[in-house]
Design a protein around this nucleic acid. Structure first.
Lengths: 342, 342
DNA sequence: CTGAAAGCGCTAACAC
DNA sequence: GTGTTAGCGCTTTCAG
């Protein structure tokens, strides 16, 4: 059964007494090739067990039909859903997806960018590492005009396509909702402020307070480096056991919002009656925690699909030179954790 | 800034008045090249902005340094962790990872296998789609002796490397634990029985019952097609409202186990006092649900790393002709959902 | 220690 | 409608 030698178009050509180019064209159903010939070639090809050598074609065409994706880590609900969307869309268009994890480290992100650059991917989608503050490692892509799209955790300093949500507005509606539920002292778990997503969420939170005539109290704003559950729990403990406890919390992600609920339970603080909580992302855990967590619906899958589409269409349409930003709508999903009134 | 033309080793060679072969060797730090020359070449290369053309090297070397991964869908905790492990290990060894989702459909799995086969990946890791019952689409890999490793949802009919856990034993200890907690009527949520993982879990469950002198009651065994939360909730409702309600449930995954707890809460059945519950996987939701869900710790990341290692080492060591099975240990994680005694 | 030259397999411009 | 031919950029054998 084993075939030690790979069949090439030359083998087919020889057997059929035609030229390699004819075979090549026939295999692509080129219009200038007779139907007869096409049939003949196809038959012979499958008979000999031919498989096209994509690598050779890639070399010749200067195209790999592969896109790269650099993300923090794949085992997070938002990211895995995002990347799932990218894959679906890319496959539709005949592209492969290589992914690489930065584990939120700049060093790894740079390494990944370089490796992917050298592997001649046709485009790159990036959601930045938490740490990243400088963006030189993406310059080579711009210089060589390789399509580059940032998603969610983006930088605006680089003149590339962006796919984002309106973080400011999302945070605004989340906070406004808490206010409408009667909260007057609303705390905020903020993320690293050099990352636009977290900076904007903080802004939206402050906007809502200001609009409602509530003071922005810096002692109610905690900046968490990683926004993981340990950090979230500690922050919750701190703010819930301190004097002048808040009656509402808007957290920058669901993970820490869940920690808040768990901590409140432990401390005997009633959610939502004494403490209303809203998270961000709509991770699966939102409907598992009791009370269910109100949150902002983050359209991860759609963002992935759009990023891929943007990347591949921008690519084939060099007329669009200017960088475009796609900003997706989000909505508040109100659940028990913040529902005091009907 | 833009470079319209790519620099090749020929450009470097010309500038330096040496031959392309010397440049090629120097770039690889071949021992037969003088240190002087190597330095000169490296300097010129970076000065000209040279980047190696990996595609050309791939063609020449008949190797892509890329491995493919086919999984059901990436946005599941177990899968995303698995795939994260694969990527980490692959990167260490200088390999890229292309992933493709089957969405649990055979048709897509076949398509993915064919596409990846043609793209000349150096190896393939597969966790089978729920549906898959025939395995011809993997034959081409075997014929061409392209390393093939199955993980978790595997087939034993194909003489390839396998990375699995001991599902029978895991289910056995889970069920035994329920018995030790005093359960005498233990139900089981089984998965599709043509998938080895679910078949073995059922066997382990039955073994534990039999060993303890308890009857295997088929009315307590429900086979769920997809093991998603909707199915889980329905099954829970059915079995908890029927006559002769069970006092324990061992579910084949955490998703449905959580549904059981949620349903029990709604029905006013106390967990664990009236109904002890054990799941499988140790998904993040286990510690979010209240009471926390006892489960089997599934070493997803490690499985991914091992699968990648197995794939890449087997590859470079053709002496190992026989297919090997790596079976990982699991352990029971006991939490509140099944803790009646101390 | 270095160079010449062939070839990995495919494509497409240019002939006929 | 089909054939000839020249590469895509790299590696490596063989020769020196």
């Amino acid at each position: 059964m084993k075939r030690s030698k790979e069949i090439t178009i030359y083998d087919i050509a020889t057997e059929l007494n035609v030229s390699p180019s004819t075979v090549s064209r026939a295999l692509k159903k080129h219009k200038s090739i007779g139907k007869e010939t096409i049939k003949k070639v196809e038959k012979k090809a499958s008979q000999l067990g031919y498989r096209p050598n994509v690598v050779a074609a890639n070399l010749r065409n200067q195209k790999t039909h592969t896109i790269g994706v650099i993300i923090s880590r794949v085992d997070r609900p938002f990211i895995s859903t995002l990347i799932g969307g990218i894959e679906s869309e890319a496959k539709k268009k005949g592209y492969h997806v290589i992914f690489a994890q930065s584990h939120d480290k700049v060093k790894l992100e740079i390494e990944n960018a370089n490796v992917l650059f050298n592997s001649r991917i046709d485009g790159l989608i990036v959601s930045l590492a938490m740490e990243t503050k400088s963006y030189e490692h993406f310059k080579p892509f711009l210089d060589k005009e390789i399509p580059l799209v940032f998603v969610d955790r983006v930088t605006e300093t680089l003149n590339t396509d962006l796919v984002v949500i309106d973080n400011t507005h999302s945070a605004y509606i989340a906070t406004k909702h808490l206010i409408e539920q009667g909260c007057t002292r609303i705390a905020h778990f903020a993320g690293a402020q050099h990352r636009n997503v977290y900076r904007n969420r903080r802004t939206g939170y402050e906007n809502a307070l200001t609009e409602a005539g509530l003071p922005v109290d810096n002692s109610l704003i905690l900046e968490l480096k990683h926004l993981n559950s340990e950090e979230g729990y500690k922050a919750a403990e701190k703010i819930l056991t301190g004097k002048n406890r808040p009656d509402g919390i808007f957290a920058s992600n669901d993970t820490t919002a869940v920690s808040v609920i768990q901590c409140a339970k432990k401390l005997g603080i009633k959610v939502p009656e004494e403490l209303a909580v809203v998270g961000f992302n709509n991770d699966p855990i939102c409907t598992i925690i009791d009370p269910a967590l109100s949150t902002i619906d983050h359209p991860a899958k759609q963002m992935g699909e759009l990023a891929a589409r943007q990347l591949l269409e921008h690519k084939s349409d060099p007329i669009i030179d200017s960088s475009s930003t796609i900003k997706l709508k989000t909505s508040l999903i109100q659940r028990a954790s913040s529902t005091r009134k009907k």
